[in-house]
């Protein structure tokens, strides 16, 4: 009787253990994007604006529609060491250039590999509505979820 109890406990533990080591990983998307928030330059508070993004380098992309948002995800390029976007606020565009390095990283059996980026600097054309750009967290890595860049708006 004592053996049967021990046996059942062991079997349950093993099944739980094997279940926990299963390969049912959930793979996150958009993990190679710089999370960019918009702030009012005067008060440093986060603000919602009408924003449309176009990719400029390494390729030109103008497929994205305008949205009302207080933050966006800007995907960094795996092919080059810089990525350029044009950000349109109420139809007026400013160019933002991310300079970055990258390192290949293993995520899991199911999700495979990804690049972790380090944002070295961000250039911008402050001729229209962008007052300042600040790199808040230079590491863009898997499942981190922090804001990387703050764009201060006039």
């Amino acid at each position: 009787m004592k053996f049967n109890v021990i046996s059942i406990i062991i079997v349950v533990l093993v099944l739980l253990g094997v279940g926990c080591t299963g390969s049912d990983d959930i793979c996150l998307s958009g993990q190679m994007s710089a999370t960019t928030g918009f702030y009012l330059d005067s008060t440093s508070t986060q603000t919602t604006i009408n924003m449309r993004v176009e990719g400029r380098y390494p390729r030109i992309d103008s497929s994205r529609a305008e949205t009302s948002t207080n933050s966006i995800f800007l995907p960094l390029s795996m092919e080059t060491d810089s990525t350029v976007f044009e950000l349109f606020k109420d139809g007026i565009g400013e160019t933002v250039t991310f300079h970055h390095t990258k390192e290949l990283a293993y995520v899991s059996e199911e999700c495979g590999f990804i690049f972790h980026f380090t944002i070295e600097s961000v250039d911008f054309t402050n001729t229209k509505y962008i007052a300042e750009v600040e790199v808040a967290d230079k590491e863009v890595s898997y499942n981190k979820g922090t804001e990387n860049v703050k764009i201060y708006i006039d």
Binding site: G55, M78, E79, T83, I114
Partner: peptide
């Protein structure tokens, strides 16, 4: 090894 990126 394929790293998926639907944007670039």
């Amino acid at each position: 090894v394929i790293i998926r990126d639907d944007y670039w």
